[in-house]
Design a protein around this nucleic acid. Structure first.
Lengths: 187, 187
DNA sequence: GTCTATAAAGAGATAGAC
DNA sequence: GTCTATCTCTTTATAGAC
């Protein structure tokens, strides 16, 4: 085929799968070209900054997706806090492939990518902490405690993903996720 | 200097610092040569299998160190269970640089290295789980609960390290580590 | 907007001197 | 046991046709 094309969403979806699996340093432009069905030169046309810019676009896109699918529904979605936390736990389970996929925060925060990307990860993690703390507070937990519970919930999710990858078994992640509603006061 | 040399321990120490910081794919033989003060060819003399063999040696060496400094003292060290858990928490704090250094289990379990290395990481993580579960059981927690508490403790340590790296702040790790004695029933 | 082709730099790996 | 020198392959990045 002489001319192939692919939507930005589909391109970033496939790039995300590579980066979250192999990390920034573990992914080459050749892999990105194969995964997207484009030639390397075409990737440079769409992302003149090369791999750094692709990675940054992936993280920006993931951050937007989390805002839309996790943070916003937690804050303003319909139903009780309990029901909203249940919903986003289900979405997290899907996003992390029942514990068999790694976290983009984990793999992309390894030194090697740009400073800009590192800052985007930090800001998104902070938004996650804030979203969890707000729902815990809504559930009746005091401000300081709510922030502690939010951090503990995310800590267990991230740690569960690490253990799941090391052990080759999604169960540690599943057990971590199961504890989230109680931690946020919505069990 | 025409002939430099370096002990195996010192070499593996410096290689570990690189691998735990940048991950397997993020470390080149050039970096390893510079960090150890040897030329690449000298590294191949000592590790004919190249980067894979160096990484494997690092993990084997770390596993031995954890056995000696963490697992064994937890099982047979002197003093109460409470005192032994306190001691190994202090050693973990030091090993992880108060949360500012990443975990070798996390970074080296990213696909790219050999299957042998992956299996060594899994076995060492299992030994860690077993060691924590044994001390929790000694502290009076039932078998199934002890295993759950051991997993939760390690999950929080690993997750705390991820959050600390993303946020650029060792505090999440410190808070996770603080919870370990209570989780293991030795608070 | 994607392609083919290629340049330039860096990676892993080996040969052979000392 | 370490060195210098080199080889090959991969990677990033660009030029120019269509």
């Amino acid at each position: 085929m002489a001319h192939r094309t692919i939507s930005d969403d589909e391109l970033l979806t496939r790039a995300l799968e590579l980066f979250r699996t192999f990390g920034f340093e573990g992914v080459s432009l050749k892999q990105l070209a194969e995964a997207t069905g484009l030639e390397k030169a075409s990737l440079y046309y769409r992302f003149p900054g090369g791999k750094d810019e692709i990675a940054m676009a992936v993280v920006t896109w993931v951050a937007g997706g989390m805002q839309q699918l996790i943070f916003d529904p937690l804050a303003t979605g319909g139903g009780t806090a309990r029901r909203r936390v249940q919903l986003i736990c289900e979405r997290l389970r899907e996003f992390y492939g029942c514990g068999l996929k790694s976290c983009v925060f984990d793999l992309m925060s390894i030194p090697g990518a740009s400073q800009e990307l590192k800052e985007a990860l930090r800001a998104t993690m902070q938004a996650w902490l804030d979203a969890f703390a707000a729902v815990a507070k809504e559930a009746g937990i005091s401000g300081a405690q709510a922030r502690a519970r939010a951090e503990e919930a995310i800590t267990r999710i991230e740690g569960g993903l690490v253990l799941s990858r090391v052990m080759g078994d999604g169960a540690p992640f599943e057990r971590a996720l199961k504890a989230v509603p109680e931690l946020l006061g919505t069990a």
